[in-house]
Amino acid sequence: MKVIYKITYPNGKIYVGKDATDSINYFGSASDALIAKDFTREQRRDFQVRKQILWESEVATLQELNRKEIEFILALRANHPQVGYNQWPKPQESRQDQAAE
């Protein structure tokens, strides 16, 4: 089973990822350093995250899985630093800002 999932952190920020193995224990590859900056040492002592399956398929190809991941990242704005921890694809505003530099 291939899945697209959303991880929600205690601060409300999200991370959207994919898993081609449907592992119950896989929570993505979001940047540890990026997430750690948002939490104090005390907040890290009692920390819960929520994992939700947004989409699943037994027959999707890896290409389809990759497309779905990007689709959900963009739809949920998980790549916007105020909303989530996905660092790719870069938000549209950032691309325009970079082109202007």
Rank of each mutant, 00 (worst) to 15 (best):
W55P: 08
N11Q: 05
R77S: 14
K6P: 00
Q63M: 07
A78W: 06
A60K: 01
E93K: 08
P10V: 08
E56S: 11
D46I: 12
K68H: 10
T40V: 05
N25V: 03
N11F: 10
I14P: 02
T21G: 03
E42Q: 13
P89Y: 10
V49T: 14
F39W: 05
K2W: 05
D97A: 13
R45F: 03
A100W: 12
A100Q: 14
V83I: 15
H80Q: 12
Q52T: 14
A20F: 01
P81T: 06
Q92H: 13
K37I: 12
A75P: 05
F27K: 08
R95L: 14
Q92D: 10
L65E: 02
E93T: 05
K51R: 15
Q63L: 10
Q48S: 14
N86F: 03
P89H: 10
T8L: 00
V3R: 06
N86V: 01
Y15T: 00
I73M: 05
F27L: 06
R41E: 15
A75V: 06
D19G: 01
D22S: 10
L74W: 06
Q48C: 11
K2T: 06
Y5E: 00
I7V: 13
Y9L: 15
P91Q: 04
R77N: 15
K13C: 01
L74M: 11
I24W: 06
E69V: 11
